[in-house]
């Protein structure tokens, strides 16, 4: 159960090796979470699990999860619930950035990327939401992105999927209204992780730790959107109204 100040008992991370996802889980463990399940490709994430145990988690489970296999997602959620009991927080952290030029040159690879970044979240998100609705409480934390607020030339394959994901997450939250469960949409800008290491840092870069702290604040205060850093909320407002002629020429 989430307590009045946002601390929880259990956390499931879909994409359990994600640097951001792990930082969130670690922060929640430091705030009192006892049990974490890491859902990863291959079913094993020993280093990530060790890190969470070190932070104080009493139980850390590892289980198989492939975002690209929607048919398996309901079963993954059921397994996680079998291991953890109530799912207090589910973090949907999986994703794939890729190299924009390469994706543009390879339509099949681009579609696969969009499949992970959008389709995978649709099925996993709905499967998670069904569980949370049934248990009458819980928060689904969706890693959206500034890239989806207004899609840019520089990463539009990724950005388009994030825009789709963001819209999906908003709709899902509305669908969950009154169910006791809800969706929290996280919109970081640039975060240096293994995913983004190959692209130059954008202004207002953040660390996984900062994302985690903002998510913890959001859980405590019941935010629907979490911008990291928070100034991005205003930046986004500017982005939305920039004329296309300017927007098109943005380098990153």
């Amino acid at each position: 159960m989430r307590n009045a100040l946002g601390a929880v008992r259990s956390v499931l991370v879909l994409g359990g090796r994600s640097e951001i996802g792990l930082a969130i889980a670690e922060r929640l463990v430091r705030d009192g979470a006892r049990a974490v399940a890491l859902a990863v490709r291959g079913g094993r994430a020993p280093e990530a699990a060790a890190r969470l145990r070190e932070a104080g988690a009493a139980e850390v489970h590892e289980l198989e999860f492939d975002a690209d296999a929607p048919a398996s997602h309901a079963a993954v959620l059921a397994r996680a619930a079998g291991l953890l009991g109530d799912l207090d927080v589910v973090v949907a952290a999986f994703g794939h950035l890729g190299d924009q030029a390469a994706l543009e040159a390879d339509p099949v690879a681009a579609a696969a990327s969009a499949h992970t970044n959008l389709t995978g979240h649709v099925s996993a998100g709905l499967a998670a939401a069904a569980r949370l609705r049934e248990q009458g409480h819980g928060v689904l934390v969706v890693l959206s992105s500034m890239a989806g607020v207004r899609v840019r030339r520089a990463n539009f394959v990724y950005g388009a999927a994030k825009a789709g994901l963001d819209g999906f997450a908003q709709g899902l939250d509305d669908a969950l209204y009154g169910s006791g469960a809800r969706v929290m949409i996280v919109r970081p800008g640039y975060v240096r992780t293994k995913m983004s290491a190959h692209v130059p840092a954008a202004p207002f870069a953040a660390t996984p730790r900062q994302v985690a702290d903002a998510v913890a604040d959001g859980l405590r205060l019941g935010w629907r959107y979490v911008w990291v850093p928070s100034v991005l909320r205003s930046v986004a407002a500017v982005f939305r109204v920039l004329p296309r002629s300017v927007w098109r020429r943005l380098r990153r």
Binding site: N3, G178, G180
Partner: peptide, 22 residues
């Protein structure tokens, strides 16, 4: 909508924190 006795509602205590549905 799942079946069962009663209406499904969101409940919280006097502090109005951490509502859940039952």
């Amino acid at each position: 909508e799942d079946a069962g006795a009663g209406r499904r509602v969101l409940l919280s205590g006097w502090g109005r924190t951490a509502p859940t549905a039952a």
